[in-house]
C-alpha cells in the first residue's frame, strides 16, 4: 500500500507542478464540444437531443489525448525500468498511476461537463445522471486506456495507434454513458445503465491493472 500512496503522491505533485497539462485536456474537451453547434446548427432542440452523446464522445477523446503520455515520461527517463526492477507489485504501481491520471484529468472533465452541457441546452433533469455517469464511466476509461498506453510504449506512432486500439473498447462505456443521460430525458427509469457502468468499472478495476502490468513488463524487458 505504501508503494501506492507514495507513487500517487509523486504523480499528483508532478501534475500540480505541470497543471497546464490538465488544463489543456479540459480546454480540448471544451473546444471539441463547442465545434458541434457549428457543425450541426444552433437549434436548441437538436442540440438538447444530442448533448449527452456529444459530451461523452468529446470526454472520451479528451481522456484519450491525455492517456498518450501516461507512461511515456517514466518510460523515457528510465523510472519505469526501476519500478519494474524494484520488485514492487506492478499492478499496484499501475493503479497508483491510473488513479493520479483520473484525479488530474477525469475529475476536471466531470467538473467542466455541466458548463458545456449548458451551451448544448441539456434539459435540467439530465445534469445529475450525466455527471454521475461520467463519475462511474471515466475510471473505466482511464483503466482501459492505461492498457493501451502501456502497449504502445516505444512504437513509432504512439498516439494514433493508441486511438485505434482503445476507441473500439470504449464503445460499451459510450453506449451506457449516453443511455443514462437519455433515459432521464425521455422519462424512463434511469438506474439500469448507471449500474452497468458501475459494473464495467469494477470489472476494469480487477482486470486492467494486471493487463497493464504485463504490457509494461514486456515494454522494459
Amino acid at each position: 500500500m505504501s508503494v501506492f500512496s507514495a507513487l500517487l503522491a509523486r504523480d499528483l505533485k508532478l501534475a500540480l507542478r505541470q497543471s497546464a497539462d490538465s488544463m489543456t485536456v479540459v480546454a480540448f474537451f471544451a473546444i471539441a464540444t463547442v465545434l458541434f453547434p457549428f457543425g450541426i446548427g444552433p437549434e436548441a432542440n437538436v442540440l438538447a437531443r444530442i448533448a449527452g452523446g456529444v459530451l461523452w464522445v468529446t470526454a472520451l477523446l479528451a481522456a484519450l489525448l491525455s492517456l498518450d503520455r501516461l507512461f511515456t515520461v517514466d518510460y523515457e527517463d528510465g523510472t519505469l525500468d526501476q519500478l519494474v526492477l524494484s520488485g514492487a507489485p506492478l499492478p499496484m504501481v499501475v493503479l497508483a498511476k491510473v488513479t493520479a491520471h483520473w484525479l488530474t484529468t477525469g475529475v476536471p472533465l466531470i467538473i467542466m461537463s455541466p458548463v458545456l452541457a449548458l451551451t448544448l441546452h441539456l434539459p435540467a433533469q439530465g445534469y445529475a445522471p450525466m455527471m454521475l455517469a461520467l463519475l462511474l464511466g471515466t475510471p473505466t476509461v482511464s483503466l482501459v486506456g492505461a492498457v493501451g498506453a502501456a502497449l504502445v510504449l516505444g512504437t513509432r506512432r504512439g498516439g494514433v495507434l493508441l486511438s485505434l486500439l482503445v476507441l473500439p473498447l470504449y464503445i460499451p462505456v459510450l453506449i451506457f454513458g449516453t443511455a443514462s443521460v437519455e433515459a432521464v430525458i425521455t422519462g424512463v427509469e434511469t438506474n439500469g445503465p448507471l449500474l452497468i457502468l458501475a459494473g464495467f468499472a469494477v470489472l476494469a478495476l480487477t482486470l486492467c491493472p494486471w493487463a497493464t502490468a504485463a504490457a509494461l513488463r514486456q515494454a522494459v524487458e
Binding site: V147, L151, V152, G154, T155, R156, R157, A215, Q218, A219
Partner: peptide, 18 residues
Amino acid sequence: ALADAFEDPERGDRAAAI
C-alpha cells in the same frame, strides 16, 4: 497495426498477444 509498430519484432509479438 500494433504487431507491426515496433522496430524489434519480438516486442511487437508480445504487445499484440496481450
